[in-house]
């Protein structure tokens, strides 16, 4: 009886073994496929590694190019500001000359008027008086004022240079972060010690506001004005803190 039980257990185990081999036979092609895939993947990984190394080496160049853009626009803006200053100086001299001419005209008008008072029937004096007019000068003034307004608008528009420089610096900072990540990845893949950054490879040394925007809607200025107005009546820091803590909730 015991022998029969043992034999039964033995057949059960043999059955399990058979199932295992059958399963193994089914599994072998899958394992083979995995091995083939891994063999195919090795060159792919090498290619990824190479391309990461290439990208990492190109990033400083891209970053320097962005910095060059900022420097070039700053230089160009300075040149435009020089020209604007030149035009502004010329305008000021036009203003002062037209003022002199106006004064002279007024003097001429006064003298001619007093002559006319002495000789009221003199037609030539009357004609001369009618010719003395500062209408043309008023037109010159109006044109000069328009030019001055345009100069002011150019100056306002040139602030875009600072704002775009900050945006470029923000992009540079992002590029720098990506370079750091890629360099870390290379280190993991190659197992090499990373060389410390050379000072010339430091990508983002410019301070920036990543939210810098060139918008002329004045909304931010209005917000600042309203916050300042609210703090103006407050006398203690405690009151100001309380106001802002309520506002931040």
């Amino acid at each position: 009886m015991e022998l029969a039980n043992n034999m039964e257990k033995l057949f059960e185990k043999l059955g399990d073994l058979k199932s295992f081999f059958v399963y193994g036979q089914k599994l072998i092609p899958t394992l083979q496929k995995i091995l083939d895939f891994m063999q195919d993947t090795v060159p792919l990984l090498e290619s990824v590694n190479k391309s990461i190394a290439e990208s990492t080496s190109k990033i400083p160049k891209a970053s320097h190019q962005l910095n060059s853009v900022s420097s070039a626009t700053e230089l160009a803006t300075t040149e435009i500001l020089d020209l604007v200053d030149g035009i502004s100086n010329e305008l000021n001299s036009i203003f002062s000359k037209t003022n002199e001419v106006k004064k002279n005209l007024n003097k001429q008008k006064e003298l001619t008027s007093s002559l006319l008072a002495k000789y009221p029937d003199d037609k030539e004096i009357k004609d001369l008086l009618s010719l003395i007019s500062d209408e043309e000068l008023k037109l010159v003034d109006a044109s000069s004022n328009k030019i001055q307004e345009s100069i002011m608008n150019i100056t306002i528009a040139l602030q875009v240079q600072d704002i775009t420089s900050q945006q470029l610096a923000s992009v540079n900072h992002l590029i720098n972060s990506i370079q750091e990540k890629l360099a870390g990845l290379l280190l993991d893949l190659n197992g090499k010690e990373r060389e410390p950054d050379k000072p010339e490879n430091k990508l983002d040394t410019i301070a920036f506001n990543e939210n810098a925007r060139y918008v002329k809607d004045n909304e931010s200025q209005k917000l600042a004005d309203s916050l300042i107005a609210e703090t103006n009546g407050l006398t203690s820091q405690q009151e100001i803190d309380k106001l802002f803590s309520n506002k931040n909730e």
Binding site: I163, S220, A224, L227
Partner: peptide, 23 residues
């Protein structure tokens, strides 16, 4: 260029007298 409310509040807390947003 910083025109966010929290920036303005931070500057006022540091005791700037007034605040201008570029441009």
């Amino acid at each position: 260029t910083r025109g966010m409310k929290e920036d303005i509040v931070e500057a006022l807390n540091a005791k700037v007298n007034n605040y201008v947003v570029k441009p």
